[in-house]
């Protein structure tokens, strides 16, 4: 669990995450299922050159989807909400 690129899998850009970013400097990522908060913190700090104040995580359970009698399950994943120090920001979320 060393490589930052493997821990942070993708940013989540949604209505909710946009609001969180604007109201509380919180950025949301999808992260590796086995990563812990400490690893996420250091990965974000190294990748985006920012100071992280707090990391909150949750396991999101995949939805069960069915097509007629067959049913399948979307994979579970881990979400991390990262709060940054005041003044820091991640350009990736800023659009153009």
């Amino acid at each position: 669990m060393k490589e930052a690129q493997k821990i942070i899998q993708r940013p989540m850009i949604t209505e909710k995450s946009t609001r969180q970013k604007e109201e509380g400097r919180q950025y949301v990522f999808e992260v590796h299922r086995d990563a812990n908060k400490v690893e996420i913190q250091s990965a974000v700090e190294r990748l985006f050159k920012v100071k992280v104040l707090q990391v909150r995580t949750s396991n999101v359970l995949g939805k069960v989807k069915r097509l007629g009698r067959r049913h399948g399950k979307r994979p579970d994943w881990k979400k991390a909400v990262v709060t940054l120090r005041e003044g820091d920001r991640i350009d990736f979320f800023e659009g153009a």
Partner: peptide, 9 residues
């Protein structure tokens, strides 16, 4: 409900 900066991107 898409914010302007996302649209621009």
């Amino acid at each position: 409900k898409v914010p302007r900066n996302i649209l621009e991107r």
